[in-house]
Design a protein around this nucleic acid. Structure first.
Ligand SMILES: [Mn+2]
Ligand SMILES: [Mn+2]
Ligand SMILES: [Zn+2]
Ligand SMILES: [Zn+2]
Lengths: 138, 138
DNA sequence: CAGCATTCTGGACTGAGTCAAGAGTTTGGC
DNA sequence: GCCAAACTCTTGACTCAGTCCAGAATGCTG
């Protein structure tokens, strides 16, 4: 699978480095992880990496559309490699756990706002808020 | 209208202070404003106010449901007093301007996710991303 | 395998937001 | 109206995610 990642990077004009491959692997392995978690994962995988390298790499990946950055109110930035499928997120107000929600309607459904105010809309981001099974009082 | 605000505060068990009334007035007058903008507005209204007082007041107002906090990815926190109508936001990727979008479907429509994973969902927050008329190349 | 472009590193820095403790203000019972 | 108790405001230090910088190291292309 590293080969696939290498191709993916090269295809976007990016050099292949152990750090980048490790960051991509980390994002894939743990969806919705924070920068800190990803950094820890990368470190336990390849030994060491600078904080800056992780931030840079994540930034470039997001820019190239290889991964997605999510940042619900009150949360630190999180990343995932599930991209381009217009899926949404469900966040627990209490413990902040985050789960994926497939787009209820279909392809890019929620994309159609009633009036677009002249905007050219390219994405509809939906965050559902509530209480997870553990946190809602039984 | 200050009287209305006073009643609103008292009704929620909050003491009425000039700072709080001024913060509420500022939020009402300028929707989607940042803490800094609101602080400036309050200062030019009542002379001076501490940063902490503004943060505290906004926090309490949000907690009581008097106002709403919005924080799209990459943006600093913003506040509005239009609350409880499940309306959404349209944000320009380039200039960050933010406009209100009425909920396309109806009351609390988007509230129904296909599978709720056992969560008790209480809000569906929608952010539409795109280019505003000014920023999209003609 | 040389030279250049790109990336990595470590450390300083920024800026939104939080914490804490003492001073000040509002309120409700008298 | 007055007083104590409850609540709020102020100041200043602090936290923490994220950014900036410049020199060192590395990967890539010819
Ligand atoms: Mn996801
Ligand atoms: Mn709004
Ligand atoms: Zn939970
Ligand atoms: Zn714009």
């Amino acid at each position: 699978m590293d080969l696939a990642v290498e191709q993916q990077l090269k295809g976007h004009g990016l050099q292949v480095t152990v750090q980048r491959v490790a960051v991509m692997a980390a994002v894939s392995a743990r969806p919705h992880a924070t920068t800190e978690e990803l950094t820890d994962d990368v470190r336990s995988n390849i030994g060491s990496v600078s904080r800056q390298a992780v931030y840079d790499t994540l930034g470039i990946f997001v820019e190239k559309g290889l991964i997605r950055k999510i940042q619900p109110t009150g949360s630190v930035a999180r990343y995932e490699d599930r991209v381009g499928d217009n899926h949404h997120h469900l966040v627990c107000r209490t413990c902040s756990v985050m789960v994926d929600i497939d787009c209820a309607v279909g392809e890019t459904p929620c994309l159609t706002a009633e009036t677009d105010h002249g905007f050219e809309i390219d994405e509809a981001e939906v965050v559902y808020w509530g209480q997870c099974p553990q946190c809602k009082t039984p």
